[in-house]
Simulated scan of single mutants.
Amino acid sequence: MPINLDEAIGAELDPVEFSWSSSDIQLYHLGLGAGADPMDKRELRYLTDGTPQVLPTFGNVAQSFHMTEPPAVKFPGIDIELSRVLHASEAVTVPGPIPPAGTGIAVTRFTEIWDKGKAAVIWSETEVKDPDGTLLWTQKRSIFARGEGGFGGDRGPSGSSAAPERAPDLELSLPTSPQQALLYRMCGDRNPLHSDPDFAAAAGFPRPILHGLCTYGMTCKALVDALLDGDVSGCASYGARMAGVVFPGETLRVSVWKNSGDDRAGYSAVVTAPERDDAVALAGIEFVPV
């Protein structure tokens, strides 16, 4: 059904209460490839029993972590077939480290919907607080819905995948495993696009693709490890735009540039797939230290 802007824009969903445990954190980090070297004490900080440190990107998945069914894209004024939907962007801001176990109350509202003609881009913002009302993190997300444009809305700005016109200050190698999507889907994203070859083919892909949020989380971890000596408490915010697909088993390249200005200017980055002529997977990455 066509998107109803009057009903969708500004719509606020009912609060959702959810909880997570240290085992959830460990599984999430394993899904991102943590522990590849099980003798590396820095790696093991992500997997410690009871008190693992928590990547801020867990905030992007915590609410849906225990889902066992494919997600439905049905909200006020919005009703879209799942196979038409791709992640467009994600961002998270944390006032302090996310606790390794806890309870959150999430309130989501829809902020913008752009009409791209053949597609729609739908933006939402979620605030998560603990039961005492303390803000734990703020999440921003956009999804790209193929075939859902043409409803007469504002086209919105055009994104760019262009990297800065100078050599990167740092380059990182980011390997993915052939079974990575099958492991990462245990973190609550059961979209068959990432596990079912027939479903992926119907959506126009030669084989299942890696979750955009997996590439997103892996990149955050790589930046934390390289720029903050593996200390997640040094990251204040992180965000990226999903600019292309990743196929499990590929080794990606993360190119990093230090932004001009003071230390709070942070870093920009782009993730590419060298095996596919440096096709861009993540663009517009912004990593801001505390």
Rank of each mutant, 00 (worst) to 15 (best):
S177Q: 15
T215R: 01
E17M: 10
M39R: 15
P76S: 09
D278A: 06
V254R: 08
W257K: 03
G230H: 07
T219M: 04
D229L: 08
T48G: 08
D229S: 14
V94D: 01
E127V: 07
G59A: 02
Q26T: 07
G249Y: 10
G249F: 09
G156Y: 10
S268P: 05
P164V: 09
S22R: 02
Y267W: 14
A162M: 11
L228C: 13
L47N: 11
V256E: 06
V288S: 05
E148M: 13
A200K: 01
F205I: 02
T272P: 07
T251M: 04
D263Q: 10
P289R: 05
P248M: 15
R276V: 09
T134G: 12
L183C: 01
A36Q: 14
S142N: 05
P70H: 12
I78E: 00
F144D: 03
D115N: 07
C235E: 07
K116E: 11
S161K: 15
F144Q: 01
G117R: 04
S21T: 15
G244W: 00
P70K: 12
P52N: 01
P100T: 06
V107K: 11
E90N: 11
R185Q: 14
Y216F: 15
V280I: 12
T103A: 01
I80V: 15
E275K: 13
E125D: 09
L213K: 01
R264Q: 12
P208W: 03
T176W: 12
G150R: 08
T251Q: 12
D24V: 00
A36L: 14
Y28R: 03
K41R: 14
F65Q: 08
F199T: 10
F75Q: 13
A91S: 15
V107G: 00
M1Q: 11
M242E: 02
I209P: 08
I9M: 07
G59Q: 02
E165D: 15
S83I: 14
D189L: 10
I98M: 07
S177T: 15
K258S: 10
P38R: 13
L282H: 01
E7Y: 00
L252G: 02
M186P: 06
P197T: 09
Q53F: 01
F110G: 03
A281F: 03
P95S: 07
V290A: 14
W137V: 05
K118P: 09
L44Q: 13
G153S: 09
E81I: 08
T176C: 13
A240M: 06
S124E: 05
T176G: 10
L30M: 13
L5S: 12
E148Q: 13
L86Q: 05
A181V: 04
G147A: 13
G234Q: 11
A36V: 11
A279F: 00
Y46S: 12
P97Q: 12
S268L: 03
T103E: 00
S23F: 01
D6S: 12
A145I: 02
E112P: 07
Q26W: 01
F287S: 01
R109E: 11
P157Y: 12
F205P: 05
D132C: 00
L182V: 08
D24Q: 00
V288K: 12
T48M: 15
V73T: 11
M39E: 15
R207V: 06
A203I: 09
V256R: 04
L5A: 12
V246Q: 04
G204Y: 06
L174S: 07
P164D: 04
P248A: 14
V16K: 09
S19A: 13
L5I: 06
L135T: 09
H29P: 02
E43A: 11
